[in-house]
Design a protein around this nucleic acid. Sequence first.
DNA 1: TATGAATGAGTGTTCATTCAT
DNA 2: GATGAATGAACACTCATTCAT
Lengths: 206, 206, 206, 206
Amino acid sequence: MVSKQEQRSEETKKSILASAGVLFSSRGYDAVTMRDIAKEAGCSHTTIYIYFKDKEALLHQLSMPPILQLLEQVDTLLSEDSPPSDKLQAISLRVIEFCLVNRNMYNLFFTVKSVRVDEQTPEMAINQARNKLFGKLTESIQAVLGLNSQDEQLLLYTRIYFFNLYGIIATYSNSDETVEQLMGRLQPTFAESFEVLLIGIRSKVK
Amino acid sequence: MVSKQEQRSEETKKSILASAGVLFSSRGYDAVTMRDIAKEAGCSHTTIYIYFKDKEALLHQLSMPPILQLLEQVDTLLSEDSPPSDKLQAISLRVIEFCLVNRNMYNLFFTVKSVRVDEQTPEMAINQARNKLFGKLTESIQAVLGLNSQDEQLLLYTRIYFFNLYGIIATYSNSDETVEQLMGRLQPTFAESFEVLLIGIRSKVK
Amino acid sequence: MVSKQEQRSEETKKSILASAGVLFSSRGYDAVTMRDIAKEAGCSHTTIYIYFKDKEALLHQLSMPPILQLLEQVDTLLSEDSPPSDKLQAISLRVIEFCLVNRNMYNLFFTVKSVRVDEQTPEMAINQARNKLFGKLTESIQAVLGLNSQDEQLLLYTRIYFFNLYGIIATYSNSDETVEQLMGRLQPTFAESFEVLLIGIRSKVK
Amino acid sequence: MVSKQEQRSEETKKSILASAGVLFSSRGYDAVTMRDIAKEAGCSHTTIYIYFKDKEALLHQLSMPPILQLLEQVDTLLSEDSPPSDKLQAISLRVIEFCLVNRNMYNLFFTVKSVRVDEQTPEMAINQARNKLFGKLTESIQAVLGLNSQDEQLLLYTRIYFFNLYGIIATYSNSDETVEQLMGRLQPTFAESFEVLLIGIRSKVK
DNA sequence: TATGAATGAGTGTTCATTCAT
DNA sequence: GATGAATGAACACTCATTCAT
């Protein structure tokens, strides 16, 4: 059983994390101050330092859990018993949804940025997760195209596939609509984009 | 006739603008200080305020000329006597190059960002320019696909075309390579991406 | 009879005091935080406030026991049946050792520092102890020189003797060596300094 | 001719330096804040950063000029045509006066403290100056005692001489009296301390 | 008795901006 | 027109201390 204190503490921490998430997403990491986060979370800015080492720690704690969850979901989708192209489609949509839910935070995942050599642990973790995600997507594309993993064409068309994916995310990451609205309205568009792209690619691969 | 003073004055202003452009592009808007710009421009940081209301004004004045130049170049390309698909390809590559040259400044073009109600003029101007650019690209795509401008399919595939375009830009806008290096290395990749995409789209449009 | 609770309580207090002593001595008063002390003492930092009004109170409580112990030892040395000059030598070396063991804490003994008018008790106590120590040393010097306690020369040469003593302490109070190392290495030097000084003084006194 | 602006600027800088000097001396470097200095100097705390890189720079600018001046004066005294013992006496008194004028700042000269390896320039400069001073004093003592520079006795008695010197400085560096008052009142005492010490030492050296 | 939670005051430092010249 | 001087607001972060439990 958890005491009332522990409960309150947990609430405060969650509130800080949630506030930081909202603010980082809407205004960007640099533009958000610790006091902004505190005000949003309804506590003193010093309280944040009780739960998080510094501003950067906040950012990382904020980004690891969702990305790990995403990886798990991708794994689940990959292990399903369905045509490779269906899997790729599902994974792609899932990645899009994930990035839109985490809005501008996705920059954290997809840009290398500030990888300090001396204290590598947190960035390394994200780097690893990101590389894993890329690997899984590549794997899925490979299965769809029926290419050998050494084939130069695989790299080329994976890149191009990523352009489409990243373009979708970048286009709508600044939207004011909710993710539900966006996905509801545009999922067919996204699906179509992958479909036509794969048609084009297949015409080249063979 | 312009006096010598006016001439010197104009030179200073241009120097400030040029310096700000270089610095904003290479280090990002936030990371550049007014003193940095002044040092680069060879004047005092207070001098900047004679010509520009504040730092943001600098950014806006800075973004109009290149975007206008881009529009002009796109117009030139459009008016050339060559196959529509060649034109679209050329325009697309030109837009990519433009966005990479202006790096993180391109956010200014493609995101709405901080539209203050009281003094809308500069944002409006950029909005107009951007809309024009989108219009021209759409027009070019329309010509390639041979679609009616009212056709729902036009909107759909233009959107998808933009995904690819925007994805390329977003992918490489944080790169440390020079634009020359990037374009030299990846232009074939970019071209291939547009080609396969159009193949796929055409197979649907008929 | 003391209850178990009282016993535990006393232990905690002693632990805090001991930890603070170690830390103040090794890192200096200002550089040590209440949390540092608490961690070292194995309790919460708030617990410290149960036993001590504030950080400064800790410092004062910390300085009394050793200085009282020193006074006692000096008394023992004084009461021994040996030549006065041997006694003075022994006392001097003991004082040096004491000051080096308590390192930068010795400032507390030898400087007046922040005597608040409202709550004078702790400073008063230290003042008294210090004055007693000075008195005993003067007494010992007097015995060595065979001077009358009213003699002006006594004050003069006592002062000079203190210069030497204080100079030794000040010189080595910032050293990184342990007290054992320092005393082992330099005790002959210290002894020689007192010896030549007394030779010089005696040549003047008669 | 200097403009009014330059004059004001110079005044501000001097005022900051003077205020920092007073405060560092009376309360110690760490206990003084940039805002304290600014208030004392009658300017904003940010103004300090116009003239000095950071707090440490202030400290070093504050300490170099006087120590260089001291070195010069010691050189002058050394080059005079008078008995070695008179020179040593004069130099010793000069060093005492210097340290009392610069009160607790002398800690900066005489303690090694915080010599960072990476950015050595400022500390190095002070280190050099201090070593020069020590060298000159040793040289002077050597001349008085007529010892060979390799003689072990020279090191021993130089050390002891320094104890006396440093003891005097440490004793009066916290005094509230002005330097004039102190020197006027105690110069005979200081002179006597050196005299008896040298008598004692000479009796050993030969 | 003891503690985790929380905070206000304060640290050095930076920066866009204003003002007097 | 141009600039050096100056500043207030803000930044991330720390710490001694208080409060509710």
